[in-house]
Structure formats: structure tokens, C-alpha cells
Design a protein around this nucleic acid. Structure first.
Length: 288
DNA sequence: AGTGAATAGGTGGGACCCGC
DNA sequence: GCGGGTCCCACCTATTCACT
């Protein structure tokens, strides 16, 4: 397996301070069954399959991709992808974030439920090369990177436009569910109720619950609960924060209640999980 | 830090209705 | 027929307290 990876941080003002910027890009010749996840990324990330094949599993659906196809990872959406055992793929990738990234992506037809598209667009195959060429221009690299990204997204929006008008889309169930998920991802650390979530989306609480369950297979409150537990698992595994601090970090004012809900969801207490009892518990088992 | 019990309030499912 | 909303009720979650 060979890999070329480039990292850049043109956002010195702080995370997300820029409208749109590329965080990293690269190219990878994957080994058989090389995989990621189930897990999440905290940025948008495109993958473009140049040769070989592999699978992408997201939102309960599995896609088989071959040369010429691509997929977009949405931030904070659990995804699993794996190279084929006999014909592993070679792909290039590009991660990006910024205040306007969500806005631009929403103007395409790409969603967490429908992340796969074709590179027949004559846009994708060259993105890696265009990004890498910027390395030769140290003084203007950040501007060149942004220019490439804007150029690419512009082509993508024009060739894969969102299916409906902005007004019509705003009313679609899919968009409501997507917005609800994003709201939960952004506010899981606060006291958050489904009533408040529905109100902020301009929907009736019962109606939101119905369409959310229809799309995700579980109601919003269950999704919020499991999302909090998944975050808590990460804090327990990757930090030295106390259980009380982690409880408050994921939206529980009461550490006792947090411990109770944690054990009910994962079968072990937070301290047992940290000690290793929950090592076998995959994040995918918590959030579908 | 964790468990168990009691309680109040919030939530989801089903049925039903309305407007387009 | 479909999207969107309301009502009722059973169930679940969050809270509180006592205890280990």
C-alpha cells in the first residue's frame, strides 16, 4: 500500500473562521480489505476511485464503487468503507471545511444518504493533480488551494444540482431530517429536547419524529441519546476527563443520570468502559 | 463513582383531520 | 393520495434522594 498525503491549515484565525478551506488531500493505493470505520470525520471529504473497487456503507445502505466513481463523506456521519479483497481500489481524497462548506454542499444533490456520484463529470480526476501543483507556489498556495476548491464545487453544483428549488427543498422530508441531524450534532452538548429541535426547524414535534424515524429507523431522541453515548465513548477512550466532566460535555447536567444511561446503552458503566470492558463495543453498535 | 426506587415531565405511536 | 398538523395515552427519560 502506498500513500501520498498532504496537510495544510490555512485557517490561522481558528477552526471554521474561513469560509471554505482545504484541510488535506492525498492519494492512496490501498491494500486488500483496507478499511475505515465505522467512524466519523469532522470535515467534508471527497474520495475518488481511480482503479479497483470497494464498498461504502453509510446510513444503512451499502454501495459498491468501481473506477470512475466517487463519494462524499459528510462531517459527523458514521461511515464505513473498505477496499475490495481481490481488486483493491486506488483513490485520491480531499478534505475541506469552513463556514460556507455546508452551504455549498447543500446546493448539490449529494447527501449523507446519497453520497455516491460519477467522475464522468470530467471534473474529479484532476483535482488531486491540481491541488498538488499548488505546492510549487509557496507564497500563494492558500489562494490557489481555495481557487481549486471553488472551481471544483462550482462544477459540481452545476452538474449535480439539488433536485428541487431552494424553497421546495426546504420543505422536503429529507432536508428536514438532515437539518435535524446537523442540529443534534451541533447541540448534543447542551440541554436539548425534541420539542425545541422541532420548533427551531419550524416543524411540529410529532411530524418531525415521524419523518425522522422513517428516514433513520429510530426517533430523534434515541438518535440524540446514542450520539451522546458515542461521543462519551470517545472522551472516555481518548481523554483523562472525569466521568462528571464527560457527562457535562455531552449534555448531561447530572453525572449519575449519565452513568445510568451509559450502562443502559452499552451494558457497562463509564469507568468499566474506560478500563477496557467496552473495547469490543463498536461505535456503529451505538449509532446506526 | 455507581445503583436502585419513586416521581414528574417529555416523547413516540396511532388515529384522525385538513388542505392541496 | 400525500404532506403536514392535532389529540390521546402508554411508555420512556430525567430528576431527586438514599445508600453503598
Amino acid at each position: 500500500m502506498t500513500q501520498k498525503h498532504f496537510y495544510c491549515n490555512p485557517d490561522p484565525e481558528g477552526e471554521g473562521a474561513n469560509d471554505l478551506y482545504i484541510t488535506h488531500w492525498g492519494k492512496e493505493d490501498c491494500a486488500p480489505l483496507h478499511s475505515f470505520g465505522p467512524g466519523i470525520r469532522d470535515v467534508y471529504k471527497f474520495h475518488f476511485v481511480h482503479t479497483g473497487r470497494g464498498i461504502v456503507r453509510v446510513e444503512g445502505k451499502t454501495y459498491t464503487l468501481t473506477a470512475g466513481q466517487a463519494f462524499l463523506i459528510h462531517p459527523n456521519v458514521v461511515i464505513f468503507y473498505q477496499a475490495d479483497e481481490h481488486d483493491p481500489w486506488t483513490y485520491s481524497y480531499c478534505g475541506f471545511r469552513g463556514n460556507l462548506s455546508e452551504k455549498w454542499v447543500s446546493r448539490t444533490s449529494l447527501t449523507p444518504e446519497q453520497p455516491v456520484f460519477s467522475m464522468d463529470l470530467q471534473v474529479m480526476p484532476y483535482l488531486y493533480d491540481l491541488l498538488t501543483e499548488t505546492l510549487a507556489h509557496e507564497s500563494s498556495r492558500d489562494l490557489r488551494l481555495n481557487a481549486v476548491m471553488y472551481r471544483f464545487l462550482t462544477a459540481l453544483i452545476e452538474l449535480l444540482p439539488a433536485a428541487k428549488t431552494a424553497e421546495g427543498e426546504a420543505r422536503s422530508q429529507h432536508v428536514y431530517v438532515h437539518r435535524a441531524m446537523e442540529y443534534i450534532h451541533a447541540h448534543y452538548g447542551e440541554a436539548l429536547s425534541v420539542t425545541q429541535l422541532a420548533a427551531d426547524l419550524g416543524l411540529d414535534r410529532k411530524y418531525l419524529s415521524a419523518i425522522f424515524k422513517g428516514a433513520k429507523g429510530l426517533p430523534p431522541q434515541q438518535y440524540l441519546l446514542r450520539y451522546r453515548m458515542r461521543k462519551a465513548c470517545r472522551f472516555l477512550r481518548d481523554s483523562t476527563l472525569s466521568v462528571g466532566e464527560i457527562a457535562r460535555s455531552v449534555g448531561y447536567a447530572d453525572a449519575l443520570l449519565f452513568s445510568k444511561m451509559f450502562k443502559r446503552t452499552l451494558g457497562v458503566s463509564p469507568s468499566e468502559f474506560r478500563a477496557g470492558a467496552g473495547e469490543a463495543m463498536l461505535e456503529a453498535d451505538i449509532v446506526p
